[in-house]
Design a protein around this nucleic acid. Structure first.
Lengths: 352, 352
DNA sequence: CTGAAAGCGCTTACAG
DNA sequence: CTGAAAGCGCTTACAG
């Protein structure tokens, strides 16, 4: 034989199997779900018929009947960002292990698109939704689209005022540790680069940045914060602004690795030796970070595991757990490589 | 009001709407599909009921009835590779525009996982499948899993002996152009780095590489081909092997950009100035390529557009077009940046 | 212009 | 251990 359902005009259904095996479709349904009720010999006959007819189970029909669904919506704000790619891979993996199947939607930071895919996900009967909200998502708008009963978890970005469970890293502590490290290296004039105030994540990371500064008795002037798009280009622009500013920082803690990579490249292009003349730290530890020139010191947030974690939280609320208890904040750890200058000879560092 | 289906114990259905509007469910169904048959006043009443009850259309039920599906399987061999991420984004976008919704499966080059997700996709009733096959996929195995009637298109990688339509770039011509460029720069001792013979794509790219060599009257020794994993690490290993070999090439054409980036980094670490002492060209033009140090000369294949193109091809075969006619080979173009040395001063290039 | 009826492919009590 | 019946939420001829 060379493949299922050869030449058949239409796909075999449970009743075709029943007829072929000389039983009722109820019995076929039982063997499909491995019920111990059916006699071995009958089961055998049915299994053979299934093989022979190349039967494939219609899960949608079953779902309709049982009012269950094995679909989960996975709404990603910017899949092209390696950070979110890794998150998506983690979610897909976690969902797969839990017997769910992800419907992917890349909103590309577009709120209109986000609304439309959310609506589409509802119509397609997903059991729940995992979403990294697009920039500017607001709690009220979300509640307008989604039935209150729709299980949902937010990941990597919070939505102000939303009661939905959130899974993500401890941005504040991670940032504090990174900036404390910069301070321990002798820096006191440290810029924050990238993102903008509409992103809850930026606010959290800035809080951590200021925590470290204050803990060291250093000032926290607002004009050391340089907003930008959270992209390579944004990083380039932000570092240029920082360099041109009257404060002339000697180090920068960046909103994320992409921004840090844009900044290090621009620094290099301008003859500034990153890790020697200037220190840079990123956030996320995307796979590219260690291949950056120079390799990037950054805050690892176990993005992939976090994705799988989000899948498990969603499953929890699908199974009726109190959403309030399904939030999860992941630990972070600073990964020291070359861009912060910790490995540079002390005499060189003196010149900073 | 603050959101659909507030407090409702179960979701409203078409019959709830019918009851609320005082019509039959047939009529409700008609307005749902914008039929011109129903009287304006009736439609109005029904629309209002839909609003009020926060009704959401159950597309799965409709699909069951009409034997149609708006799901498409998107099976990706390695989502973490930026090249495939870009492909996935293109596919998702194309599918979205065509009214389909992608179910994502990342096989991670694992054949067992690929078989299992393919089976799962069937059970979930997808209308078709777009797949970049995992390494080692064979035509016969595929035909065992998939009904002959399942619409499917292969993308970016062919499967030997499979009659399925294929959408991807013109690997051979793209490679020929790249290597011809290296030759025009004065190189005659050019290595091919990365991939292995189980990948149809590698064979195609090697063919193009040899085409260019032959066209210039140059030899095409097999020991200038250095197989490796198609990853950064693979690129590092391959370039080391090339450098250690008795042929000592002065330039390398790489299987893809990731390999090229691994190679350029290793070269740099060993004090070889890429674009000056040694020329490197990649393939794919992933977004990171232009941010590489030095910026990578590479073959652009319009990956994103190719993804959207694959979506359209799939829709063609779903709509009954002859699969034979749905293949598509995309044009490529060489993007010259710094890693090939074309921009290096001629006197420096002399030293190669 | 609108309604009654049948049916898509399953599952699930309920009988026997 | 197995079968008959009802029903999940829709659509689609077919009447009227």
């Amino acid at each position: 034989m060379d493949g299922p359902k050869r030449g058949a005009s239409r796909a075999a259904t449970i009743v075709d199997i029943a007829r072929a095996a000389g039983v009722s479709k109820s019995t076929v349904s039982l063997v499909l779900k491995d019920s111990p009720l059916v006699k071995a010999e009958t089961r055998e006959r049915i299994t053979r018929a299934i093989e022979q007819l190349g039967y494939v189970y219609n899960r949608s029909a079953a779902n309709l009947r049982t009012a269950r669904s094995s679909f989960v919506g996975m709404v990603i704000s910017d899949l092209m960002n390696p950070f979110f790619t890794e998150l998506a891979v983690g979610i897909e993996d976690g969902l797969h292990d839990l017997g769910f199947v992800p419907i992917l939607a890349n909103t590309n930071e577009d709120l209109a698109r986000q609304s439309s895919v959310l609506q589409s996900l509802l119509e397609h009967g997903v059991a729940g939704i995992i979403m990294s909200p697009a920039r500017g998502t607001d709690a009220w708008g979300l509640s307008q689209i989604l039935p209150r009963t729709m299980p949902m978890v937010l990941t990597m970005r919070r939505v102000d005022g939303s009661p939905l469970p959130y899974v993500g890293p401890d941005n504040r502590t991670g940032s504090r540790d990174a900036v404390a490290h910069l301070i321990s290296l002798g820096h006191s004039n440290i810029a924050f680069l990238g993102g903008d105030g509409t992103m809850t994540t930026q606010r959290e990371r800035i809080n951590g940045y200021q925590d470290a500064l204050r803990a060291a008795g250093l000032p926290t002037p607002d004009d050391l914060i340089f907003d930008s798009m959270p992209t390579r280009v944004g990083g380039a622009e932000a570092i240029l602004a920082a360099l041109a500013s009257h404060r002339r920082p000697t180090a920068a803690f960046c909103y994320n690795d992409i921004v840090a990579m844009g900044a290090t490249r621009t620094l290099g292009l301008n003859g500034v030796r990153v890790g020697v003349d200037f220190a840079v730290i990123g956030f996320d530890d995307i796979v590219e970070a260690e291949h950056n020139a120079p390799p990037l010191t950054t805050v690892n947030a176990d993005t992939r595991i976090m994705g799988a974690r989000a899948a498990r939280s969603l499953l929890g609320v699908i199974d009726g757990a109190d959403p309030q208890t399904m939030s999860y904040t992941g630990k972070t750890r600073l990964v020291i490589r070359d861009s912060c200058g910790a490995h540079a000879p002390a005499n060189l560092r003196e010149t900073v």
